[in-house]
Write a protein that binds this DNA or RNA. Structure first.
Lengths: 228, 228
DNA sequence: CGATAAATTTACACCGACTGTAAGTTTACG
DNA sequence: CGTAAACTTACAGTCGGTGTAAATTTATCG
């Protein structure tokens, strides 16, 4: 039962493992391309399978549902949040930490270049695609909610509280709200033709405005136009 | 084209209208009862239709999807929020306003007595039903998100801002986060056997803790157990 | 190298939510 | 009472998703 299996320590280096990773990536890429071109709801899973020369069941062997063909970065984002809000980021407030994570994620969105489109156009079309599909919007909400739970756990663990206590839960909701603001700004700016650098600055500005309010508390929210 | 139609002004008082309201209510009640008894995912829409002596298509004529058979109070809740955060509630901060709305909604949950179960048991089973069904949990998130947009619009309108601006959006997320905390507390307390009055107090206590943090700002969040 | 065991893929049959459509039934109204 | 509009129904069909058992592929060991 116990083999000594030379060099099996950490790197998953079998032919089987490699093929699996490649197949998964191939399906995900093909699917995203099809979705970007024709819209999420206009492409059937059967179409994706056909385009990959693979059976429909195989698609479902790799991905839990149609939506996760699109939202593939959830585990990575959760890890970023755990890292930023966990024991490592002791020096920073939760708001500062989440703003940094958001910044990283935005950079990454712009960085993944693929095909001959500019990064900017790709991001814009990706966000439009989500916006235009009710099921993708719902999936995004599910994702955000999961990230909120991760954030609550991280903060609670660091502060020695129960993750289900009111404070970590409320704090996590507010933090993820900042993220939503950033995504909204990104969508708006990606449609504008101000170019990537201007867009990045504008998104960051909106993010900071949201962060400031959440950090300082809603008591500071202006209830009338005259308030400041 | 223009008839003078006596007494048609406001009250929809036709036989047709009355029957429609009755049918809709009958379907909703029957469905909820079936869901409470067997679980949301264990009951097919066809089962609901059969139990109502109605065709499956009729169910879908009245309700957009299976989930809205359960979440029927969304419009009323949205109206409450608009009222509380809109021009009427000028004297209160958004946090105070939402806490009041939550209080009302909790009262209402306990008040609707039906069948021979105590209100308490009914609420408990209703929340369990939601918790146990992934699709109902997702629908609840969609509902919460919609309420957040309503809250953002109301606050923005009152303050003379754009609803899509960072401040109203971030504020709305945080406010709805308080609501989520209350729901969580309600679910927890409803399972305890402390009785309705104790439960109500406990839920209110958690709500206030969340509201306090959101109102004062996350800068006041304790990052370690020693902080206070 | 070849046989055997394990993991994957595939075809296939199936479920359940949901949507058109066209025909039948009920209500409104003159 | 008869006609028009609203509503319900049966029915056929689409699509996402799942279970199963038979191929097919890969890993492992003698």
């Amino acid at each position: 039962m116990v083999e000594h299996a030379p060099a099996k320590a950490s790197g998953p280096t079998g032919l089987r493992e490699r093929k699996k990773r490649e197949t998964r990536q191939h399906i995900s890429n093909t699917a995203t391309a099809l979705f970007l071109e024709h819209g999420f709801d206009q492409v059937r899973v059967a179409d994706v399978a056909a385009a990959c020369d693979v059976s429909e069941k195989t698609v479902y062997n790799y991905f839990a549902n149609k939506e996760s063909l699109v939202f593939d970065r959830e585990p990575a984002m959760a890890a970023l949040i755990r890292e930023a809000l966990g024991p490592d980021g002791v020096g920073k407030t939760p708001v500062e930490a989440i703003v940094e994570v958001i910044g990283k994620e935005i950079e990454l969105l712009f960085a993944q270049r693929e095909g001959d489109d500019s990064d900017f156009q790709r991001v814009s079309r990706f966000l439009d695609m989500i916006e235009e599909s009710p099921s993708l919007r719902t999936a995004q909400r599910d994702l955000m909610d999961h990230l909120a739970q991760v954030a609550a756990s991280a903060m609670a663990h660091r502060a020695g509280l129960d993750p289900l206590d009111p404070e970590p839960q409320a704090a996590a909701s507010a933090l993820i709200g900042i993220w939503s603001v950033s995504m909204r700004a990104l969508r708006r700016e990606a449609s504008n033709a101000d170019g990537p650098s201007g867009a990045r600055a504008a998104v960051l500005a909106d993010t900071r405005r949201a962060a400031r309010l959440i950090g300082a508390g809603l008591a500071s929210f202006a209830t009338t136009a005259r308030d400041q």
